[in-house]
Computed example of a mutant assay.
Amino acid sequence: MRRRGAVCVAVAVVAIGCAGGDGGAGAGAGHAQTWADGTPVVWTDDEMPDLPLRKYEFDGGDHGEDAHRDMESAVGLLAQRCMVRHGFAGFPRDPKPFTMAGTVTLTAVSVNTGPVGSYDPEQAGRWGYGWDPARASGPRRHAGRMMTREESEVYYGDRRAEYSGCSGEAYRRIQRGVRDVKRMWTYVTEREYTVRERAEREPRLRRAYRAWADCVVDKGFKRYTDPVAASSDKAWRRGKDGNTKHTRRETGTAVADVECKRAHNTAGVWWAVTERLQRRELVEHKAEFDSVRADRDRLLSNVREVMAAG
């Protein structure tokens, strides 16, 4: 299973009935693995099964979550060779980008909490809809030294031109044989977004959201249309980094949010609705998805060839 959330904390399992969340399916089952109709019971990120379109994503093939890392390694190796050819002996494989003295780098922190938010009651109780600033990650750390201005100009070439400089040469090499680069990178994400919009209009999911909202109100908090609306409430006063103020009202709402999602298996219902729509999507656009996967596999094959050659 694929981990989608930012933080997963082990919590004690308590028996919560599922009655009323989806027509009584799984009533009284507690924290079972599935409801009687096959809907998975999702209390943590690790319990969210992969969806059908997952295997068509860039990191959904044989390389798995290492696909992006392996591609960056191959690009770095090819770009390094190119720089050496241009007379920059000793150029590092993973250089830091050139920056002017005194330049300030702003880092935006992104927290992925999935389509129906977080499921972690401990995290919700401490940080609400935000996160611990001490655990926020900054920019990716490069292993090599910083490029000089001269090296940077050769490495990136004409920044207004696509695939320019040694970096562009490296990308052209690993994309050799790929029929439609843009579609390879964007098609699956676009179709996933389309399915997500359709799922939000499905009566079953709307009923699940209403049950969740009623539960949150019963615990003394504001009514929201869905968990996304709760997490994006402007009352949480997010700063420039996206983090919230962690007020008592916020953390209380976040805990109620998690408890109600577990009580009514909101995430499991979302998965079941989305899974059905994604399977239909695969049937209706089979040729396009097959082409995307073929291009993805071609690129990763090129990556393996580059790395094997050293």
Rank of each mutant, 00 (worst) to 15 (best):
Y163C: 08
S164V: 02
S164C: 01
G165P: 00
G165E: 01
C166I: 10
C166H: 00
S167H: 11
S167F: 14
S167W: 13
S167I: 05
G168V: 00
A170H: 01
A170G: 03
A170T: 05
A170I: 00
Y171Q: 13
R172F: 03
R173L: 11
R173H: 05
R173F: 08
I174S: 02
I174D: 00
I174E: 00
R179M: 00
R179T: 06
D180V: 02
D180Q: 04
K182V: 06
R183F: 03
M184T: 05
W185H: 04
W185V: 04
T186H: 14
Y187L: 03
Y187K: 02
V188W: 10
T189Y: 15
T189E: 14
E190I: 05
E190W: 04
R191I: 06
R191D: 03
E192L: 11
Y193C: 07
Y193G: 08
T194I: 12
T194D: 15
V195D: 13
R198I: 09
A199P: 05
A199L: 08
E200N: 08
E200F: 12
R201L: 14
R201D: 06
R201G: 08
R201N: 07
E202D: 11
P203Q: 15
P203L: 15
R204W: 10
L205P: 04
L205M: 10
R207T: 11
R207H: 07
R207C: 04
R207N: 12
Y209W: 15
R210G: 06
A211V: 07
A211K: 15
A211G: 09
W212S: 03
W212D: 13
W212T: 13
A213F: 10
A213N: 01
D214F: 12
D214Q: 01
D214H: 05
C215F: 09
V216T: 10
V216E: 11
V217F: 09
D218P: 05
K219P: 07
K219I: 09
G220V: 08
K222I: 05
K222W: 06
R223F: 11
T225Q: 02
T225N: 14
D226Y: 12
P227G: 09
P227Y: 14
S231L: 05
S231M: 06
S232E: 15
S232G: 10
D233T: 06
D233V: 10
A235L: 10
R237M: 13
R237I: 10
R237F: 15
R238Q: 09
R238S: 11
G239E: 13
G239Q: 09
G239H: 14
G239P: 03
K240D: 10
K240Y: 13
D241G: 08
N243F: 14
N243M: 07
T244D: 01
K245H: 13
K245D: 15
H246E: 10
T247Q: 11
R248E: 15
R249M: 14
R249P: 03
